[in-house]
């Protein structure tokens, strides 16, 4: 059990996260938040690359910093910006990381073969990394995180740069891995975690806003989400009255999807995770629009 106790993280005078409390058990946790919300910051603390300014993080009730090597031994991490040595082949780089993770050579070889197959890179293991595409590098990154069969797997935007086919493969891979370990992945792409995440964590204004399963999250908008086809000139008015989550051009007007506290003569629709995400961070988008202006 991995627990974050009342953690605050300051960068000099700037507070990135404030009084965060979280618990992780087996399963997939999705960290869903927009740019700059503090996802990477939280993850870097979870892998001891940086340390809380206040509060502590424990694994099985022991501080992860004190656990040190013991904790890193059960840790797998894919940084958002996965660095590699250009002149290394994928196999060589993975062998090197395996050595750093304390795997012996023969075991590492087998494991690397297995993992490269799992991410569909079995044919390019002997190719130099500088010849890899961004998506291929990302998959090598996933492999290295999995080398030591980690109990805690932390992936910072693992699907960035993956094509839809690889995204689907990755999603399948995650669900098979989730049975006996903690997986925390960050993303701003809702579909990446939709249906596989046990719980979704949303960070807003430096704090954890929600840590709920998908059912509960969707129920936040239950009975409040509507769709209507309206003439073009009404769009402005809807924007000022409701939270419009999306609009779509139709042949007889514009189809708007919006949240309203009162029922009206509109079509009530089933909220998706995406709707919740858009709704929760709506103000944030407005805020950033404001910032652009000044």
């Amino acid at each position: 059990m991995l627990e974050v106790h009342h953690v605050t993280k300051n960068y000099q005078s700037f507070t990135a996260l404030k009084e965060v409390d979280l618990q992780f058990d087996h399963g997939i946790y999705g960290l869903l938040a927009p740019n700059g919300a503090g996802k990477t910051t939280l993850m870097k603390m979870l892998v001891t690359l940086t340390f809380p300014s206040d509060g502590e993080i424990t694994y099985n009730h022991e501080n992860i910093v004190d656990l040190g090597e013991e904790y890193r031994d059960i840790l797998g991490y894919l940084p958002q910006d996965f660095g590699y040595y250009k002149s290394y082949t994928a196999e060589k780089y993975l062998m090197y990381i395996a050595a750093l993770k304390g795997l012996d050579k023969t075991k590492a070889k087998l494991r690397i073969k297995e993992l490269l197959e799992l991410v569909g890179l079995q044919d390019v293991g002997r190719k130099k990394l500088k010849k890899f595409s961004g998506g291929m590098i990302q998959r090598v990154g996933v492999c290295q995180a999995l080398l030591n069969d980690p109990k805690v797997l932390i992936l910072d935007e693992p699907t960035a740069g993956l094509d839809p086919k690889e995204r689907a493969r990755f999603k399948r891979l995650l669900s098979t891995l989730a049975r006996d370990r903690i997986i925390l992945l960050s993303t701003h792409i809702v579909s990446d975690i939709e249906s596989i995440a046990k719980e979704i964590i949303m960070i807003k204004d430096k704090r954890v806003l929600y840590k709920k399963n998908q059912e509960e999250l969707r129920s936040l908008l239950e009975g409040k989400l509507f769709e209507a086809i309206i003439p073009f000139e009404d769009v402005e008015a809807y924007h000022s009255k409701f939270s419009v989550l999306s609009e779509k051009q139709e042949k007889n007007g514009i189809k708007v999807r919006f949240v309203s506290e009162q029922k009206g003569a509109w079509n009530e629709v089933e909220p998706s995770l995406e709707d919740v995400f858009l709704y929760v961070y709506e103000e944030e988008t407005d805020l950033s629009e404001d910032r652009k202006h000044d």
Binding site: R72, F82, Y84, A99, L100, K101, N148
Partner: peptide
């Protein structure tokens, strides 16, 4: 070496980690 090549985030989190 790791900082110049931006592999530090990956390599200093391994079991060997900063004792490297």
């Amino acid at each position: 070496y790791e900082f110049e090549r931006r592999t530090s985030l990956t390599l200093f989190v391994t079991k060997k980690g900063r004792t490297m």
